[in-house]
Each structure stands twice: as C-alpha cells, then as structure tokens.
Design a protein around this nucleic acid. Structure first.
Lengths: 110, 110
DNA sequence: AAGCCTTATCGTATATTTGCGATATAAGAT
DNA sequence: ATCTTATATCGCAAATATACGATAAGGCTT
C-alpha cells in the first residue's frame, strides 16, 4: 500500500509542487519577505521578527534551504541567508507555462 | 500549547500560504493542468487521467474548491469543474508584490 | 420500482508537518 | 581555559495530510 504516489507525476508537476510546499506556510513567507526586503544577506535578526521559537525558525530556514529557495553560509558564530532568485524565476516560469497562457482564452463556465 | 500559530501572521502571508498549500501536491497541479488545458468545464474524465483512486481525486477536488482555485457545479449525475482564474491572478499579484520587485536590485551575496 | 453510473463522504491507517524545549556545536570574548 | 552568544540538531507530542475501500447520494435508464 503506497501512501505517497508523488513519484507517479511528471517532474515539472513535482518540482512546482515542491516549491509551493516550501512557501505553503506563513512563517516561511514571512522569512522570505524579510530576506527580500533587506536586499542583502541576513545574519541573525530573523528570529526576532517571528512569533516562533528559535529552534522552529531554524527548522523553517532549513526547509527553505533544502528546497533551494534560499542560500546560506556559515559566517563565524552566525549564519547568513539570502534568497536564491533563480529558484523564484524557475517557479514563475513553470507556473506561467502551466496556467498563465490560457488565462485570456478561458471563459468561466461553472 | 498552541500547535498552529498561523493566525499570528499577516493576512497576505496567510492567503499566499493557503494558495501555495493548495497547489503543493502534484496531483492537484495535474488536476489544475487538465482543467486549464481543456478550456472548459470538465465533467468527469479527471479521475481517468490520474493514478489515484476516485475517492482520493474527489478529496483533492474538494480541497481545490475550498481553497477557491476552482469552481464546481453539480450537473445532474456529474460534477463540473473549472479554474477560477481570479484566484490565480490574485496569487500572481500577491506573489509578485512580495518578491518580484526586488529581483533586479538584489545581488547574490551568500 | 429497480438497476446503473457518477461523484461525494465516511472511516481508518500511515506519513508528514509543526512546534517546543533541551542539548549540541562553534566561534568570539573575557 | 571558560563563558557567552548564535545557530543547528535531537527528541518528542500534537495536528494535518494522504490514500484507500466501503458506502451513501443523486440522477438517468429501463
């Protein structure tokens, strides 16, 4: 009894879904937003602006990093994170190629 | 002990996260893709193109509908679904307003 | 009315996610 | 060498998500 059949879908579908899963939590959106707004690496400060424990934030950062949405380097006693814009471009491009093109020819019929 | 602190984030963050969660499974991406490609309501046929049981597909459809990504109407013995393009536009707009604008001024530094 | 077809819902098992505190790690400061 | 500070990881508990088969519900067809 297979309980996860994600493998049975196309690579593009899986990759889109994986990106979406990475941003499917408000905390991770908030983290990305902080990184985007600062326009540079953030070393620390992230925990302070979130209503979550340090360990929880660290876990979210790990997930974002593993999903490839952010890059991180260890810098002495701190860690520095910044957004991987290429991943965002890929998501946008994949997302649009699946849905965006049909928007104008599609009429609501339900 | 609150185990979900999603309420503590902004409405925009929550709404973006909710949309992302809805498309965070390959099966739901595949469903949306079928609906987008057909350019009309789909009554049936969806179960046939997915490697999942009928009940599972029905559940995914329910989730997509509850998240507002698709509209559905009961048409006699069948159900008809089509994409709610407005929801997609809102997602794109929210997504871009959070991340897209900073892309060009951002330099990779990690 | 009885049977059929399509879709939704229920019940249930398993897997994953979310969150926290406690602890480990690693570098700089004293 | 020890202490402090910042971050990561571990271990656990609770909540959600995923999937399926079984069953219900709602209209056609005969």
């Amino acid at each position: 009894m297979a309980f996860h059949k994600k493998e049975e879908f196309s690579a593009k579908e899986q990759s889109l879904a994986a990106f979406a899963k990475a941003i499917s939590h408000p905390a991770r959106i908030a983290i990305l937003n902080v990184l985007a707004k600062k326009n540079e690496c953030i070393c620390g400060e992230i925990v302070d602006v979130l209503p979550l424990a340090q360990s929880t934030v660290s876990q979210h950062l790990k997930e974002l990093k593993m999903a490839g949405l952010i890059d991180g380097t260890v810098d002495g006693p701190r860690s520095c994170y910044c957004i991987n814009w290429k991943a965002f471009e890929k998501f946008n491009s994949d997302f649009n190629s699946l849905f965006e093109k049909l928007k104008e020819v599609n009429a609501k019929c339900c």
